[in-house]
Structures are given as structure tokens and as C-alpha cells.
Design a binder for these strands. Structure first.
Lengths: 117, 117
DNA sequence: TTGATAGTTAAGCATATACTTAACTATTGT
DNA sequence: ACAATAGTTAAGTATATGCTTAACTATCAA
């Protein structure tokens, strides 16, 4: 898609699609951390970690502030929440449909409804 | 990451990161559809739609079967469910932490706990 | 003031993604 | 048998992504 302004969910799911970034989010879900703390378990340069962090911040999943020379990062749960809601709504919609279908089948199938009405 | 086998969540979130594919999932959450039906509201070639469908199938979000010349696609809710769970677990973890923190603050702040014990 | 720490930024590179066109293959209705 | 329908597949292209190295900028500590 040309000239497309990415929607919030584009950025959120894109950010979560990378295993390194999911690890960073997992770490941050335990509590705030500095950039170096985020980088510590990761097998890549600090530079790469900073770039991943930029993606997370652009998506709104993470917020950070610098005090002195250390930048402290923390999770921003709202975007996490809307991603979760998008998924659960589709899933709910699909499952409601299956329920209606199931009810219809039970109601019309003579083997599950031999008598009644 | 070189030589990295993409994890199921990588594929799921990657698939959901594209607005066209989310539209397809939304359509499918209302019930099964053929490839042409999926393509109908989309401003791109059938070819492109087939390729998006391949991404959705590779992620396990969608399953399809061909009968005669029409391929019918439907949602596979399991992967949707695990993506949802991943998110809600991180969010829960973050929120539990905030709760503990809040409780701690209330318990130690003399203005909210002027007497007692 | 000098050095170590913590992070930033730009450039370059390999690979992946989101398309298009075009040529092709089955299936079905007439 | 013939054309229309439904989808598939390959090739090409532009842009995006996930890194690296390297050069740089603040802050803190001795």
C-alpha cells in the first residue's frame, strides 16, 4: 500500500512480531529497566537494542525518560490492551457464530431432537 | 538474527501487522469466505490477496480447503488465542506489579495511614 | 581533567515484504 | 467444445527491516 499512514495496530503488532522486542517487553513487564539492562541478555550490540527500543516507543508499547545518562524504560499498557481487544473481539465474533451454528444444528437434527415441540 | 526459526508468535503477530490481512481476518471472523469474496473489498489484484492468504495460513490463523475451483477460508482460533494470551499475561504481570507497588505506598505513606497498628 | 559509563546517530548491507504483470491451470456453465 | 470463472505461480521491483561498525556526545567518578 503506497502512501499509507500506519494505524496504531499496525505498529503494535509489527513491534510484537520480533522475538527480541517481545523479550524486551517481557523484561519490562516485570518492571522498569535501563537500556543496558534490556540489552544485557541479548546477543547483539547496544546500538541494535536502541533501535528496537525506538520501534517499541513508536508503537506506544513502551515509554522512556532519561535522567542523567541513564534512560529508564517502562511499559505503557494501553496499546497492549487495544491489541488484546482487537484479537479477542475477532475471536468472540467467530465463536458466537459457531455457537449459533451449533444451536441451529441441534435444533434441526432429528437425532439430537427426536421429539419435542 | 541469522538462521532463526520463526516462532509461532512471530508469524502470528507479523501476519496481524498488515491492515489488509487484519481486514481479511475481520471478514473471516463473520464466517467462511472464498478467495474472491476476501478480495472483493480490497483494492489490489487477486494475486496479492492470494499471497496475503498464504501468510495467514503459514501463521496458522487461517485454514482453507479447495472444493471444485473455489477455495473456502476460515479462521482457526487457536493461534489467535495464544497471541491474545501472550499479551494478556504481560499486561497482567505489569498490573500486578503496579498493584503491589500501590499497596506498598499506601502502607508506608503516613498521610494515607496516619494511625493504626 | 581524564577516563569510564550510558547512550545516540549515521551509513551501509543483506534479507524480507508488499505489491505488480503476465502466463498458466483447473472447473463449470452453455 | 468454448468461454468464463476461480485461483495459482513466477518474476520483477520498490521499500522496509534488522542488524553491524564507527564516530560521537553527554554524565559521573576519581
Amino acid at each position: 500500500m503506497l502512501n499509507y499512514q500506519p494505524a496504531p495496530l499496525d505498529l503494535a503488532f509489527q513491534a510484537l512480531a520480533d522475538p527480541t522486542r517481545r523479550l524486551m517487553v517481557e523484561r519490562l513487564s516485570q518492571g522498569p529497566a535501563s537500556v543496558s539492562e534490556l540489552a544485557q541478555p541479548l546477543d547483539m550490540t547496544l546500538s541494535a537494542v536502541v533501535q528496537h527500543l525506538a520501534v517499541l516507543e513508536a508503537s506506544g508499547l513502551v515509554r522512556s525518560q532519561k535522567v542523567g545518562r541513564v534512560r529508564t524504560c517502562r511499559i505503557e499498557p494501553q496499546v497492549l490492551h487495544s491489541a488484546e481487544r482487537w484479537i479477542s473481539e475477532r475471536r468472540a465474533s467467530w465463536e458466537r457464530r459457531l455457537d449459533r451454528l451449533g444451536a441451529f444444528l441441534v435444533e434441526t437434527d432429528p437425532t439430537t431432537r427426536p421429539r419435542s415441540k
